[in-house]
Design a protein around this nucleic acid. Sequence first.
DNA 1: TTGACATGTTATATTTTTATAACATTATGA
DNA 2: TCATAATGTTATAAAAATATAACATGTCAA
Lengths: 114, 114
Amino acid sequence: MSSEAYEDKVFKALAAPVRRQIMDALRDNPMTTGELAERFSQIDRTTVMQHMRVLETADLIISVKRGRVRWNHLNPMPIKAIHERWIGPMAAGAVDKLSALKSELEQTSEISAK
Amino acid sequence: MSSEAYEDKVFKALAAPVRRQIMDALRDNPMTTGELAERFSQIDRTTVMQHMRVLETADLIISVKRGRVRWNHLNPMPIKAIHERWIGPMAAGAVDKLSALKSELEQTSEISAK
DNA sequence: TTGACATGTTATATTTTTATAACATTATGA
DNA sequence: TCATAATGTTATAAAAATATAACATGTCAA
């Protein structure tokens, strides 16, 4: 898989609120699949598992089966990767860029973005 | 709009490769809508505009009309926001967490995540 | 051993996103 | 002014993501 395709899986995986919440839940301690399903009991258990599979495919979750339970661990490395390669650089100097942008826009009267 | 809903729009907006490429293209200089459509000529012009509307709704693009051209500027602030609130903290200490995770996993034989 | 618990699989309906075409509007420059 | 360039709008088809139900498998503990 190309690095772009891989990076895209990570971005797509992070694009759903539930999945970011799952990441938050796993941040400090690993949890079993059942524990996660219980924490997100507003949605169906199979739906939770489907979301977990998306995270697992993006390598954001690593899981280990022990007996009949599956322990799901958060893997922060893919996030670190997009953080360093894309998000960090894009956010760098944001304040300066914003003020530069503002002076640009002051030259014109009509601003269309809300 | 709640801050979560707002944050979600940003994550969703970044979930498509074309849209990240549009962000890359606008990073150094603003571009007109036509220039962008030409740069991404593999896809339909209206499709490019639809993607731009997604970015604009997430406030990632601010555009100004001058005469009959529209200048599209990148607004890095929303990215800075998710960078600081979510991505940075999640990426912090990733290396340490990974090594801790590895020792955890060594205790078990079967690893299911690919 | 065996019942039930934890997890997994498959199928399918629903919703959202993406892509395109056809048509409309506005502004500029010859 | 008026042809055309640049952009915008609306409708719709196609693809992808999301949510759920029904059923299947493997494991533990009494």
